[in-house]
């Protein structure tokens, strides 16, 4: 039986403005030499440190398909030799949160539970200290502001991976909702709800950012074909 023909895709109500963000790394005041110090510093450090070591570090390592999640997990393994803690911290998905405080609390909870269960781990010196950093962010426009889906696909192909990260991952903190700029635009301005949902379900931890770009392109191209 032939499937029902697709409804024609409507012209977007508004253009999609591809922006990008650039970051300058600032060295923070906090430093941890063991897990107890990490815990204390995580409670006291500014929010932009939490952003740097979770959201931003994903962007810096966008080319790694597996094995890198956030700096706290990486340090727990490489400098503290605590694979269980590292696994649990790596399991924190930044896309489950729309505010940095949520991530901070989740990370603190995991480390506190681990140190409580393994008291000797708290004061064991790490091989290398953890240096808290933060980012100063500058938002930049790009030449791409398409008002058609074909234009969107074209822009998607040409912008940097930083732009993809900006719209797909960091957007949660801006939107304060469990979505991303691409999905919001496709849903609200184009009416492609299914494509919007499919994009939201792309796994950033098993894909590189180039892989994410390809998948978004495929989903949108499929929706309009």
């Amino acid at each position: 039986m032939a499937s029902a023909p697709k409804a024609p895709v409507r012209k977007p109500d508004a253009p999609f403005y591809f922006n990008t963000s650039e970051h300058l790394l600032r060295i923070g005041r906090y430093k941890a030499n063991n897990l107890s110090e990490l815990l204390r510093a995580m409670q006291a450090c500014p929010e932009d440190c939490i952003f740097q070591h979770t959201f931003r570090t994903l962007q810096e390592h966008h080319f790694i398909r597996q094995g890198f999640s956030n700096d706290f997990a990486h340090w727990s393994l490489s400098s503290c030799n605590e694979p269980e803690l590292a696994e649990r911290l790596a399991g924190v998905d930044v896309r489950d949160f729309t505010a940095l405080e949520g991530i901070r609390h989740r990370m603190i909870e995991i480390i506190r539970d681990f140190v409580a269960a393994h008291p000797e781990s708290g004061s064991r010196p790490a091989h290398e200290p953890f240096y808290f950093c933060a980012s100063d962010i500058v938002l930049l426009p790009t030449p791409y502001a398409p008002d058609t889906l074909q234009g969107f696909l074209d822009g998607l192909q040409h912008v940097s991976v930083h732009s993809i990260h900006h719209h797909f991952i960091e957007a949660r903190l801006r939107l304060k909702r469990m979505s991303n700029d691409f999905s919001v635009w496709l849903e609200e301005d184009v009416g492609l709800n299914e494509a919007a949902n499919d994009i939201e379900r792309i796994d950033i931890y098993t894909n590189t950012m180039e892989g994410v770009r390809l998948k978004i392109g495929r989903i949108v191209a499929h929706a309009v074909s």
């Binding site: 990008t20 650039e22 500058v138 930049l140 426009p141 790009t142 030449p143 040409h158 912008v159 940097s160 930083h162 732009s163």
Partner: peptide
């Protein structure tokens, strides 16, 4: 895109 970003900055 990276060169464009430099020019814009």
């Amino acid at each position: 895109a990276q060169i464009d970003a430099l020019r814009f900055l």
